[in-house]
Amino acid sequence: MHDDFSFEYTVNDNGELTRLFWADEISKKNYLHLEILSHSMLLSRPISLYKMVFVPFTAIDNHCRNITVGAGLLSSESIESYTWLLKVFLDSFGVAAKVVVTNQDPAMKQAIASVFSNTRHRLCMWHIMKKLADKVGVALCNNEDFK
């Protein structure tokens, strides 16, 4: 039995799961040591079968490896849902990361500013470069000067 396992959830009026967060004792211990590195990552991935978004909380250790420290499921990618998830995370771990790296989700950006007010929010370079390549490629293909 784990003494420090965190588990929170909400359901709607129909009893359907709308939000879920969990983190185990080992993840919490890891996070306290990794928090010094001031890196944490929030990335969301849709899970279409359940119509929910999976949000893993990942920290980076001193060997540049990703360590999962918690996870959530959300039925919507709204400011309210992300705010709830970050508040539950903060209640569970007791300390916010110094830096959070995310994709460019505007709802997540507002939730981070609201809940982690002293945390630096940075954008994921992979997402930036992917969007840049997509936009530049389209712009070059549609430009008459380059045909």
Rank of each mutant, 00 (worst) to 15 (best):
S76Y: 04
I128V: 14
V88S: 13
N66P: 01
R65T: 08
D61M: 00
S81D: 15
V53W: 13
F93W: 00
V55F: 06
A71Y: 11
I26N: 15
L123I: 15
T83N: 10
N66F: 14
V69H: 00
F89P: 02
D3A: 06
F146Y: 14
S75P: 06
S27W: 06
A23R: 02
N62T: 02
N103P: 02
L85S: 02
A96R: 02
H39Q: 05
C64E: 09
E25A: 15
S114H: 07
G137E: 09
E35V: 09
S117I: 00
F146G: 11
F116I: 05
K131P: 01
L43S: 14
M129R: 14
S27K: 05
S44K: 07
I36V: 15
V138G: 06
Y9H: 09
P106E: 04
A113T: 06
L74W: 00
D145C: 12
D24A: 07
H2S: 11
I36W: 04
L74V: 07
F116R: 01
D134L: 10
G137H: 05
A107Q: 11
S40W: 00
L37M: 10
M1F: 08
K87M: 05
A23L: 05
R19Y: 15
K51F: 09
N142Q: 10
A97G: 08
V95M: 09
P46F: 07
D24E: 04
F93G: 00
F5L: 13
H121R: 03
L32D: 11
D134V: 03
D13L: 12
T119P: 09
H121I: 03
K130Y: 12
A59M: 13
V88A: 02
V53P: 03
S114A: 04
H63D: 14
A107C: 08
I47H: 12
K87V: 01
N143L: 10
S114D: 12
P56E: 11
K135E: 10
V95H: 08
S78V: 07
A71Q: 03
K147L: 12
C141V: 06
I26Y: 15
S92C: 02
C64M: 12
L123G: 04
G70A: 05
M41H: 13
E77W: 02
F146V: 07
S38Y: 06
Y9K: 13
Y82H: 10
F5E: 15
R122A: 13
M1E: 11
T83M: 03
R120G: 04
A139M: 08
K29M: 13
R19E: 10
W84A: 04
H2Q: 11
V11K: 14
D13C: 07
N30W: 02
S92N: 00
V138C: 09
D13F: 12
V88K: 14
I47C: 10
K147A: 13
S40L: 14
M125F: 14
G70P: 12
I67H: 05
A23T: 13
L85H: 01
V69M: 00
A97D: 09
S44C: 13
D91G: 04
A107V: 01
H39C: 12
N142G: 03
A96M: 06
Y82S: 05
D91W: 01
L20M: 11
N14I: 05
H33V: 15
L90A: 13
K135M: 02
F21D: 00
